[in-house]
Simulated scan of single mutants.
Amino acid sequence: MVDTPLIRFIKGKGGNTQKQIEMETGVKIKFPLSKEETSIVIEGVSVENVTRASEKIKTILGEAVKSPSLDYSHFISLPLAVHPGLVEKLQSFQNSIMGNLNNNQGKQGCDSNEGTSDEEDYDGPVGGDSCVAVKLKVHNNDEPVKMKIEVTDASVDPRVPQSSFLSDLGIYKSIFIKPKTFHLTVLMLKLWNKERVATAAEILQKVSPKVIKALEGRPISIKLKGLECMKGSPSKARVLYTPVEEIGGEGRLMRACQAIIDAYVEAGLVLEKDACQKLKLHATVMNARHRKRKRITKKFDSFDACDIFKRYGSEEWGEFVIGEAHLSQRFKFDESGYYHCCASIPFPQSLED
């Protein structure tokens, strides 16, 4: 039995791992034809050969589940996108950055494609087009025509410097977090089969009483203010986030999150390196890792956020109640636009809850 996300580790790049196993053990490995099947077949001329191949595959799978190449599939999230006002603020933030920082690009000429190498990410300035089409009709070809055209771009915010193109800054639409998925991350998980997902969902339900106790049975609210870089400087930012401050400063939210983490560590669903990391609650707004690579010739592992910090470095995003915790699935979304919820537990909404 081999779960779908792990099959590629047995195949290897270009099928090299599979070929090596087959050559060394004298077997033939057959993979399932659909993603719904979770078993591979090992055919050999003897039990010994098949057993040797099976042991090699088990070793590969043991290394694969700890490998950075196996991406996180799920995470424990505290949804913030349930607050419409916050979603609107985030959308305005993105529109402002995409419109203002790219304004100079339109001024270079209407036929210029510079800075639009990421075809899927960049849709042009948000809030207006700097190009104007004018059709002239001249009755007498001998008469000279004079025109004066003034264009005012209402989308430009004078508070934001207009010094650079988006492409030069390494900023593309894809690196912004989708407002409808805005959240706080408590714990990342690698759940590569249905059994592990079911176990993770059960753990979240069972830890609910401890979470409520940590919250002292009272609602919990947070304040989001400003921006910070996860690592590096604003000129070479990789992750841009807004810090989280618990209203009241009692530490109840951190204790509740730690109760959740401890439950998953005890169940053996957390990798050792993740279990040792200190929890830092934050709400990501931009992440260079999400940049789409299609048609981008220049490789970016960071982006220049200096202009963004000048305007939003001390932005008041607001105060918000945390209503629940989710076991969320990455890359899959519900009708609301938020990550698919595999399980959830409620937080106290009032003193009577």
Rank of each mutant, 00 (worst) to 15 (best):
V50T: 14
K56D: 04
G106M: 05
L80S: 12
E43G: 09
L80H: 04
M98F: 01
Q91P: 00
L61Y: 07
F75V: 10
S112G: 02
K89Y: 02
H74P: 11
N100V: 08
E48F: 11
N103C: 12
G62W: 03
G99A: 02
S69P: 01
I57D: 09
N49Q: 09
E48Q: 14
S73I: 06
E88T: 14
S117I: 06
E120S: 14
K66S: 12
L101P: 03
E120W: 12
K107E: 08
N102A: 14
L70K: 09
G62S: 15
E120R: 14
N102H: 08
A81W: 08
K107H: 08
V87G: 01
V45H: 14
F93L: 08
K66M: 11
N95A: 13
L78H: 07
I60C: 05
S112T: 13
I40H: 07
S73E: 09
L101F: 03
K66F: 10
L78P: 06
D121W: 06
A81M: 11
S67T: 12
Y122M: 14
V45S: 15
Q91I: 05
N102F: 03
Q108S: 07
G62D: 13
Y122C: 06
E114F: 11
K89H: 03
A64R: 02
T116S: 06
D111V: 03
N49T: 05
T51C: 00
G115L: 00
S46W: 05
Q91R: 15
K89I: 05
H83Q: 09
N113R: 13
K89V: 01
M98Y: 01
D111W: 05
F93R: 07
N95Q: 11
G109W: 01
R52Y: 00
N100L: 10
G99K: 07
I97F: 00
I60T: 09
Q105T: 10
E88M: 13
S46T: 04
K58I: 07
Q94N: 08
S39Y: 11
K58L: 10
L101E: 09
G109A: 04
I76Y: 10
V87N: 07
I40W: 09
N49H: 12
S73D: 09
S117H: 15
D118V: 03
V87W: 02
G44V: 06
G106Y: 03
I42P: 10
S92I: 06
D123L: 13
T38K: 15
S112P: 04
V82R: 11
D121F: 04
L61N: 11
